[in-house]
């Protein structure tokens, strides 16, 4: 059967999906286990069990919670700052031609410069600490947000706008009740892109210039040659990254049930 029926998949299909998931992961871990036995150098490739113990160890002494919490907090702060600046800016750029003309060039000039390339200059400006990773994430998240919002606003159906105007809705109410809801799917997709990009950038920023956070933890354990801990923290980064995206996807289906669930590139 090629096409799945619409709506919720039947229960046994879901159970089968879970089964396939665990089977694949078990095979993967099995290959890893055998590979680790063959290489038999714990520095190069620790076995899955020692990574599991490292994970448990980090969870028990609070390292894990501390670094994960630090990184997530930085992510939230940076995303809030990016949203506060990026959403209104994207809105006015999408709404008005002259704002677009005024901002297009600086945005197009700055956008190709990766947030990560700002790290050395940011080290000079902010030093090592909390500000540096937050700034790098903010910068990384800002451009997808501005561009996604502007595109969403520009894509508002002309007929909707005309209909609203005919009924005498103009100005702020028009923006709030017509333009924003219609741009919301695009805004949320750009938010997901921005969070994914920022999560990548935080690891790089913490790897170089922060005294805490998941990126710092990875670098610290690498310098201690504790490869099992390095892999444990990489796993945590992956899990948190996919959890934040799941959360945003939930928000997407909740806020904009009419938009199709899309997988990010």
């Amino acid at each position: 059967m090629r096409t799945a029926p619409a709506g919720r998949p039947p229960r046994n299909a879901r159970a089968h999906g879970v089964l396939v998931y665990f089977r694949t992961m078990l095979i993967f871990i099995g290959i890893w286990f055998v590979g680790a036995m063959l290489i038999s150098n714990r520095l190069l490739l620790p076995s899955p069990t020692s990574v599991f113990w490292a994970l448990l160890d980090a969870a028990r002494d609070g390292d894990l919670a501390f670094h994960a919490f630090t990184s997530l907090l930085r992510l939230v702060v940076a995303m809030l700052a990016a949203a506060v600046i990026g959403l209104p800016l994207g809105l006015v750029i999408g709404l008005s031609r002259s704002w677009e003309d005024a901002f297009e060039l600086p945005i197009e000039l700055l956008r190709p410069i990766a947030g990560i390339a700002w790290i050395p200059l940011a080290l000079f400006m902010f030093g090592i600490g909390n500000t540096l990773p937050v700034f790098i994430m903010f910068y990384t998240a800002l451009f997808p947000l501005i561009i996604g919002t502007a595109a969403g606003v520009r894509g508002t159906d002309r007929r909707l706008l005309a209909a609203a105007r005919t009924m005498g809705v103009t100005g702020m109410p028009l923006v709030l009740h017509v333009v924003l809801p219609s741009a919301l799917p695009s805004i949320i997709v750009s938010l997901r892109l921005a969070v994914a990009a920022a999560w990548t950038a935080v690891v790089a920023a913490e790897l170089v210039g922060a005294p805490s956070g998941l990126g710092y933890a990875i670098e610290y354990f690498r310098s201690m040659l504790a490869t099992d801990h390095v892999i444990a923290f990489i796993v945590v980064i992956g899990i948190l990254g996919s959890l934040t995206d799941k959360l945003l996807r939930l928000a997407e289906t909740w806020l904009t049930p009419w938009s199709r669930d899309r997988v990010l590139p």
Binding site: F28, L214, I218, V230, I234, G238
Partner: peptide, 25 residues
Amino acid sequence: RNLDPVVESFRPVAAIAILPLVILW
């Protein structure tokens, strides 16, 4: 169906995160 779990497990792990491992290897 069978490969998707592995792909989806690695996809959220940024390249920079595996940098320390790559340096080791």
